[in-house]
């Protein structure tokens, strides 16, 4: 496979959230505002690139039997770094994402890419794969959070777009996350079927 297709597959064809249905937990929990979605996407992409790179570099020396604990230790190191950096430089975003930054450790997309891609491929494709997947996940988060923030809070990135009385609070409550994600998944399936 060419590097270009390694990059682009994460955005539409194998979009981690909307096609592979991975990472639903953060996607449902933190998509109450576009800012959160972007912040989560950036933190996630950073960790994914670093962990894919590290795991790909060490793929020949990681013993087969204990590979999962090794991946977790590597990922946890990068998550801890990201956590500390966000705490220091973006305190507001850090507060609103809360527990979901440390929880990137157990994000199934990152572990999934490590197992499915990084431990079988050289460093350059592994990085490209991580960038594509990271952008795909970020786009999906921004898409979900755009619907939820506009409909539920009447704002987009904090800018008022709907009249004060209009927003349906339900959309930024948990049911709004399920409804939005469900509708988007259904739409993606429909489009995929049409394309095939």
């Amino acid at each position: 496979m060419s590097l270009m297709s390694e990059f682009s597959k994460g955005i539409i064809k194998e979009n981690p959230l909307l096609r592979l249905m991975l990472g639903c937990c953060p996607a449902l929990a933190i998509t109450t505002s576009v800012e959160n979605g972007l912040g989560m996407g950036a933190a996630f992409t950073g960790v994914l690139i670093a962990s894919n790179m590290a795991i790909s570099a060490m793929r020949k020396i990681i013993p087969e039997n204990v590979r999962i604990p090794v991946y977790v230790v590597i990922i946890a190191s990068f998550v801890t770094m990201t956590d500390q950096l966000m705490h220091a430089f973006t305190p507001a975003l850090y507060d609103s994402l809360g527990i979901f930054i440390p929880l990137i450790v157990v994000n199934c997309i990152i572990l999934g890419r490590a197992e499915a891609f990084a431990n079988k491929n050289p460093i350059i494709p592994a990085i490209i794969d991580a960038v594509g997947m990271g952008i795909g996940f970020t786009l999906a988060l921004v898409l979900v959070s755009s619907f939820r923030e506009v409909l539920g809070a009447g704002t987009f990135l904090g800018i008022q777009v709907l009249p004060e009385s209009a927003p349906a609070i339900l959309m930024i409550l948990p049911p709004g996350g399920f409804i939005t994600l469900g509708c988007l998944l259904g739409l993606m399936n429909k489009l995929q079927k049409k394309a095939a």
């Binding site: 927003p167 349906a168 609070i169 339900l170 959309m171 409550l173 049911p175």
Partner: peptide, 8 residues
């Protein structure tokens, strides 16, 4: 239920 949660 939708209306009650959205526009309390």
């Amino acid at each position: 239920a939708f209306l009650l949660a959205s526009f309390p």
